[in-house]
Design a protein around this nucleic acid. Structure first.
Ligand code: MN
Ligand code: MN
Ligand code: MN
Ligand code: MN
Lengths: 218, 218
DNA sequence: GTCTTTACTTTGATTTTGCTAAATTATCAT
DNA sequence: ATGATAATTTAGCAAAATCAAAGTAAAGAC
């Protein structure tokens, strides 16, 4: 069995690689994501490579092997199903489930996981709109647009918030931008790197960085 | 934060001490309960003592300090509430919850625990009939009698099975001796160390050892 | 093209938890 | 008492995960 630490490294490598769309993830990013000093990341990634979960090229970066990819999706499935369960069945707020899932994902049994999946009716997305990989390890490639790409002056549905930071999430929640809510982008100014939008009847403005993290569908 | 290992040692020391009603627990028993070699138990117990959780007397045994006692009850509360939750809300069988709780007890947050407690309506016993310590760390001292002490030819209610072994538990379940079920002890033969009983209309017989682990109330 | 800054790797140490095998102590039977 | 047996402790070692600090390589600045 992979340790909780190994699972977190593999998951994080997957997530970073997926997010910036690059295969080789730099060690610095890995260290950052896991909150360790760079030397620790180097050592651990070498161990992951020795275990056949990753490919490591010094001074280039790390990528997942097939085996590592499979593990990453399993961990992600556990994480996201747990989040969904906490919200649906235990009255958690979607902005506060991440930390709890971060721990539970490593100890929950296959049996409990599948029971949760069944109770929830085999959900395909978690409370943040993140897709949940299937038991067999497939994940839907969603074609969502962010606030930076979507059409203006059209009513759109918030589909996903691509960030786990509790501060950001509770700002999103307080602004009525939860997954499922409706928005209209009224203006996008690329020189000011700012986006104007209308949600819950309120006028709001967000900067490029934050706007990129909110994904919508029509 | 105490590690999962420390929590398990402390919990086990509490349980053994409680069970045999002796303050100083021998190292051999600790090692057995935790599935480690005796030398490992000695080393760990010394560490527990250094951390102020236990008192260790070489060649005599280990006992809990006040601090250790508080921790033991917290862990036990988590363990038993989780077991109850798995049975009540997730359709687990009471004979198969122990292993799952053994892991979850170390990672569940205070917040999740209290939410579970509330959803279950603040239960006082777990699926095995084991008492659940309160949030403030009090546990009811129950006055239950075992099959070896209870009166004969009276209808009694099974209140608790004092053993976590899945094999034993599923034998109990299959015999219709779940907590809550009714039994009548029809005969006790001390020379044969055997007990005859009637449950679910079936005649059964158990040996001293097994009979001592089934507790009843009137 | 050299120089400086930044990113990354190496080395050596530490903590926690475990093992094996040898040494020690206590207990029990004779 | 004495020797055998059982329980416990010690000593020495190892794996996993981490850090601090020093060394090395690559990239960007001038
Ligand atoms: Mn995690
Ligand atoms: Mn999520
Ligand atoms: Mn445990
Ligand atoms: Mn129990």
């Amino acid at each position: 069995m992979p340790s909780a630490t190994v699972e977190d490294y593999i998951k994080q490598i997957y997530l970073i690689s997926d997010q910036i769309g690059i295969k080789e993830v730099a060690m610095g990013r890995v260290a950052d994501a896991l909150g360790v000093v760079p030397g620790t990341a180097t050592t651990m990634v070498k161990a992951l490579a020795a275990a056949g979960l990753a490919n490591y090229a010094p001074r280039v970066g790390v990528s997942l092997t097939g085996q590592g990819h499979v593990l990453a999706l399993h961990v992600l499935r556990r994480h996201r199903l747990i989040e969904q369960f906490l919200v649906e069945q235990l009255g958690y707020d979607w902005s506060e489930v991440h930390e709890e899932a971060e721990q539970l994902e490593h100890v929950i049994s296959e049996r409990l996981l599948e029971r949760i999946d069944k109770i929830l009716g085999h959900p395909t997305v978690d409370p943040h709109g993140d897709p949940i990989p299937s038991a067999s390890g497939e994940m839907s490639e969603s074609q969502l647009e962010s606030f930076l790409q979507c059409p203006l002056n059209k009513t759109l549905r918030i589909a996903r918030i691509a960030d786990q930071n509790p501060d950001f999430l509770s700002y999103i929640a307080r602004s009525g931008l939860n997954p499922g809510a409706s928005v209209t982008i009224t203006l996008r100014d690329s020189r000011a790197e700012s986006v104007q939008l209308l949600a819950r009847g309120q006028q709001l403005s967000m900067g490029w960085g934050a706007a990129a993290k909110v994904l919508v569908e029509r």
